[in-house]
Protein backbone atom coordinates (compact mmCIF):
# COMPACT_ATOMS: atom_id res chain seq x y z
CA UNK A 1 0.00 0.00 0.00
CA UNK A 2 1.18 3.53 -0.84
CA UNK A 3 2.57 5.63 1.99
CA UNK A 4 0.49 8.79 2.35
CA UNK A 5 1.05 10.42 5.71
CA UNK A 6 -1.19 12.85 7.49
CA UNK A 7 1.49 15.51 6.86
CA UNK A 8 1.37 14.80 3.12
CA UNK A 9 -2.37 15.41 3.14
CA UNK A 10 -2.00 18.60 5.17
CA UNK A 11 0.62 19.82 2.71
CA UNK A 12 -1.59 19.09 -0.30
CA UNK A 13 -4.54 20.72 1.38
CA UNK A 14 -2.49 23.83 2.00
CA UNK A 15 -1.29 23.93 -1.61
CA UNK A 16 -4.86 23.50 -2.83
CA UNK A 17 -6.16 26.07 -0.34
CA UNK A 18 -8.58 23.56 1.15
CA UNK A 19 -9.35 23.84 4.82
CA UNK A 20 -9.44 20.42 6.46
CA UNK A 21 -10.27 19.41 10.02
CA UNK A 22 -7.96 17.03 11.96
CA UNK A 23 -10.51 14.26 11.46
CA UNK A 24 -10.62 14.86 7.73
CA UNK A 25 -6.83 14.78 7.52
CA UNK A 26 -6.75 11.42 9.30
CA UNK A 27 -9.44 9.96 7.09
CA UNK A 28 -7.98 11.30 3.83
CA UNK A 29 -4.52 9.92 4.62
CA UNK A 30 -5.99 6.43 4.43
CA UNK A 31 -8.29 7.11 1.49
CA UNK A 32 -5.62 8.79 -0.63
CA UNK A 33 -3.35 5.80 -0.17
CA UNK A 34 -6.09 3.59 -1.63
CA UNK A 35 -6.65 6.00 -4.51
CA UNK A 36 -2.96 6.07 -5.35
CA UNK A 37 -2.88 2.27 -5.29
CA UNK A 38 -5.86 2.14 -7.62
CA UNK A 39 -4.15 4.48 -10.09
CA UNK A 40 -0.96 2.46 -9.78
CA UNK A 41 -2.70 -0.58 -11.24
CA UNK A 42 -2.36 1.16 -14.64
CA UNK A 43 1.34 0.32 -14.54
CA UNK A 44 0.44 -3.38 -14.40
CA UNK A 45 -1.52 -3.09 -17.64
CA UNK A 46 1.12 -1.08 -19.51
CA UNK A 47 4.45 -2.84 -19.90
CA UNK A 48 7.75 -1.10 -20.68
CA UNK A 49 6.95 -1.44 -24.38
CA UNK A 50 4.07 1.03 -24.08
CA UNK A 51 5.32 4.63 -24.29
CA UNK A 52 4.04 7.09 -21.72
CA UNK A 53 1.46 9.51 -23.03
CA UNK A 54 -0.23 12.57 -21.65
CA UNK A 55 -3.21 12.34 -23.98
CA UNK A 56 -5.61 9.56 -24.87
CA UNK A 57 -5.91 10.49 -28.55
CA UNK A 58 -2.93 10.19 -30.87
CA UNK A 59 -3.10 13.74 -32.15
CA UNK A 60 -0.39 16.34 -32.46
CA UNK A 61 -0.01 19.85 -33.88
CA UNK A 62 -3.56 21.03 -33.38
CA UNK A 63 -3.10 24.69 -34.22
CA UNK A 64 -5.08 27.86 -34.75
CA UNK A 65 -4.12 30.51 -37.28
CA UNK A 66 -3.08 33.84 -35.73
CA UNK A 67 -6.31 35.67 -36.57
CA UNK A 68 -8.30 37.73 -34.10
CA UNK A 69 -11.61 36.06 -33.29
CA UNK A 70 -14.11 36.14 -30.50
CA UNK A 71 -13.68 38.87 -27.85
CA UNK A 72 -15.91 39.71 -24.90
CA UNK A 73 -16.98 43.23 -23.99
CA UNK A 74 -15.72 44.38 -20.59
CA UNK A 75 -19.31 44.16 -19.31
CA UNK A 76 -19.57 40.56 -20.48
CA UNK A 77 -16.12 39.74 -19.10
CA UNK A 78 -17.08 41.16 -15.70
CA UNK A 79 -20.62 39.77 -15.63
CA UNK A 80 -19.62 36.86 -13.40
CA UNK A 81 -17.23 38.81 -11.20
CA UNK A 82 -18.13 38.93 -7.49
CA UNK A 83 -16.89 42.51 -7.46
CA UNK A 84 -15.65 44.96 -10.07
CA UNK A 85 -14.38 48.51 -10.29
CA UNK A 86 -13.25 50.62 -13.25
CA UNK A 87 -13.88 47.75 -15.69
CA UNK A 88 -11.55 45.56 -13.69
CA UNK A 89 -12.04 42.60 -11.40
CA UNK A 90 -11.81 43.62 -7.79
CA UNK A 91 -10.12 41.07 -5.53
CA UNK A 92 -9.01 41.08 -1.90
CA UNK A 93 -5.44 42.18 -1.24
CA UNK A 94 -3.22 39.14 -1.34
CA UNK A 95 0.13 39.40 0.39
CA UNK A 96 1.60 36.33 -1.15
CA UNK A 97 3.90 36.98 -4.00
CA UNK A 98 4.31 39.65 -6.58
Amino acid sequence: MAEITRDDVAHLAQLARIEMSPEELDRMAGELAHIVDAVKSVSEAAGPDVPATSHPIALSNVFREDTVGHVLTPAEALSGAPDAEEHRFRVPAILDEE
Binding site: H70, V71, L72, P74, A77, H87, F89
Partner: peptide, 8 residues
Protein backbone atom coordinates in the same frame (compact mmCIF):
# COMPACT_ATOMS: atom_id res chain seq x y z
CA UNK B 1 -8.79 49.71 -21.99
CA UNK B 2 -8.94 47.07 -19.24
CA UNK B 3 -10.54 43.73 -20.06
CA UNK B 4 -11.29 44.59 -23.67
CA UNK B 5 -8.91 41.96 -25.11
CA UNK B 6 -10.23 38.91 -23.31
CA UNK B 7 -12.50 36.00 -24.00
CA UNK B 8 -13.67 32.98 -22.01
Amino acid sequence: DPNTNVNE
